[in-house]
Amino acid sequence: MPTAELPAVPGVLSARDCLRTAETIAAAQESDGALPWFTGGHTDPWDHIENAMALTVAGLWDQARDAYRWSAKTQRADGSWPMQFRAGVIENADADTNFCAYIATGVLHFLTSTDDFEFVREMWPTVRAAVDFVLSLQQGDFGEIHWSLGPGGSSGAALLTGCSSIFHSLRCALSLADQLDDPQPSWEVAALRLGHALRDHPEAFLDKSRYSMDWYYPILGGAIRGRAAYDRITSRWEDFVVPTLGIRCVSDQPWVTGAETCELVLALDALGDNRRARQLFINMQHLREADGSYWTGLVFTDGKRWPEERTTWTAAATLLAADALTRTTPANNIFRDLPRPTRITASHCACATSPTH
């Protein structure tokens, strides 16, 4: 049974509703601890961690520990993970840097929720190796991090969404390092460079501006806040937000998705925009099933669920958003209040020392 208070969003979801959602995630967990997209589906290292965080929110701490131990067991010697597993078999051996970095966010979330320093010390070598791997691909001119590594080498390109998530994970890793008395000053330098790239060098990243994640992720990850963040949200609100339904995954497609909507909820919550955050959370509940699971999305021109999948990570994003909105668990602020090294003071980049930065 849960050992923590569960979120309850008045008039939307009860604590029991949130527990039922967490139980649908736990039901998909495989015997080795992996948390696939759905029963029989594939597991990727990022969504696996998102699911572990949701289990933590619901007080299902043993299942969350099993998930983190799966990450430790499946990590490769260079600190990376394959992009995709299915039933314990590697389906895609390439490494995604954002996928690898997210372990730091998950482990800090678990520590903040449980105060289980013993378990976090067990996980720390895994986190440290993952971060070192990710930073080995910080090969861009401005501090951006290449998005993948395969047999042919680095992808040679960076993604805005992925790097925004990595920026957040680096901040989480730095917080863990401080709390475990294992300072990592090189990580802080890397985070400062990456934050600079995210704010000031859009040319460093592939153009994926059709996707809503490129719109809100620099805010969710903490690289952009304040007036610049509000202006960014305003600039494309009409492109992505579909009243009463949630947000589009892609600006030119009639498809709203639950996970992206809940991530925007988290980004708005981080800006203190509670009214719009709560309304979006209400709007996406049409994706909820009676058992507490969530459909991935809806094609609103024909009213059809698509894909015909109820994904664990959509349920997980919903629980993380509920926790943030209600300030329930000790880790409800994981995307809101982390101390953030965002301002670089010295760089080879001329714009870093210009009067406007």
Rank of each mutant, 00 (worst) to 15 (best):
V9S: 09
H201E: 14
D252W: 01
V89G: 07
T234K: 11
W147I: 09
A157L: 09
A101H: 03
I90Q: 08
C163A: 07
N98P: 05
E188I: 02
P7F: 09
L55H: 00
G40P: 07
P307Q: 00
G292N: 09
W81Y: 05
M284Y: 08
L159A: 13
P355F: 04
R210H: 14
T126N: 01
C349R: 15
D115K: 11
C249Y: 11
W70D: 00
A290S: 14
A322W: 09
M123A: 12
S31L: 14
F119Q: 00
S212P: 13
I233D: 02
A316E: 05
W37F: 11
I166H: 05
S169V: 07
A26I: 05
T257A: 09
P2M: 03
H146W: 15
E122V: 06
R275K: 09
A204M: 11
E203N: 12
L108N: 00
K208M: 14
V127G: 04
P2H: 06
A26R: 14
E260M: 03
T21W: 02
S293K: 05
L245M: 03
A267E: 05
F38S: 01
V12D: 06
V250D: 11
H168S: 11
Y102D: 08
T161L: 12
L174W: 04
V241K: 02
L108T: 02
P339M: 00
L319M: 04
A204P: 12
I224S: 05
G33D: 04
P339N: 07
V250L: 07
L60G: 10
R65T: 05
G79N: 04
A259R: 08
L338E: 09
L268H: 12
T345E: 15
A87R: 13
V131Y: 04
L60D: 10
T257Q: 11
R343Y: 00
G59L: 03
D17N: 08
V9K: 06
G195N: 10
A316V: 02
T261H: 11
W81F: 10
Y216D: 12
F110H: 15
D32H: 06
